[in-house]
Write a protein that binds this DNA or RNA. Structure first.
Lengths: 157, 157
DNA sequence: CGGATTTAGTTTCATTTGTAACCAATGGCA
DNA sequence: TGCCATTGGTTACAAATGAAACTAAATCCG
């Protein structure tokens, strides 16, 4: 077979434009959003994103173990361990030995943690609302559904 | 989209469900996709994501300076500096003093870099295609447009 | 010109993050 | 029982990342 021209004449399949490449775009979008939110929480509450996630999940589901928190937040267990340690030492979360398993710990928000949760939840909702203000209601629903599908697809990449 | 039943005492505005929180979902999606792709490139080509981005952008736009690369890839200049250093020492990129500015460098792919680019581009396109296989053509277009809008919105968060 | 200011890129140092090894409690199961 | 593989969680170490200080070249402007 005849060799193709060296630098020109790329076939469409080979044309990679970073700015249009979905994984790249997702990364940029996620970073922009996360950074905006993270700096806000860091300044106001001295809270990192992993800590924030743990507060959020314990707020709705008290008594989870570290492992369950890891599953619920999709963080790995080391990250959870570290964030929990900080939260415990800040008296925002209490860790009690689990009834049925001496290794596991039952994690719950302390009163302080509850108070914090009550303050951050509305802010989170508000941030999301501000971002989504760029879309109509129908578009939001569409987007949400599409993200769901992609999340599932991405699981088995 | 389903209406939330008010079964807890909390008002809707305060109800934060991590799994449905868009910034969280975006982060998870982006991570899954990036991780899948990154491990593949790491194994096959010994290439990190920042390096990969630089190769991608120089492939289409040779002669950019580090600063321009930073802008094009949305990475900060430190990250670019480090990745470029690795690429240069691996002889994948060459950095020549810029004609008009002695501080700047003109970055181009070497022959090796070109060859690498020619190999990774189709793989990238293919990965993206596999992910997007979960969506119909119309949905892809929709999604893409929505991401564009959110990217713009996220810029001024 | 020539000093002050800005800009391109690098280096340094502190933090964060990821991987693997580790410890201790548990659950099989012979 | 008692041994061994498994599991929940932590620790240790290495690599990646980010912020700020730094070098050197360019620009501004008297």
């Amino acid at each position: 077979m005849r060799a193709e021209a060296k630098t020109t004449g790329k076939s469409p399949a080979d044309l990679l434009v970073l700015e249009r490449f979905l994984p790249y775009r997702l990364s940029i979008l996620s970073n922009r959003v996360s950074r905006a939110i993270a700096t806000r929480y860091a300044k106001t509450f001295n809270l990192t994103i992993p800590e924030w996630r743990i507060i959020a999940v314990l707020g709705r589901r008290p008594g989870l173990t570290a492992k369950e928190v890891a599953e619920a937040t999709e963080m790995d267990k080391v990250a959870v361990s570290r964030a929990v340690a900080k939260l415990v030492s800040a008296k925002r979360v209490s860790a009690d030995v689990h009834d049925a398993d001496g290794r596991a710990q039952s994690l719950t928000l302390t009163a302080q943690g509850e108070a914090l949760h009550a303050r951050i939840a509305p802010i989170a909702i508000e941030s999301e609302r501000r971002l989504l203000a760029a879309l109509s209601m129908t578009e939001r629903a569409q987007f949400d559904a599409l993200i769901d599908r992609l999340l599932a697809a991405a699981r088995q990449l």
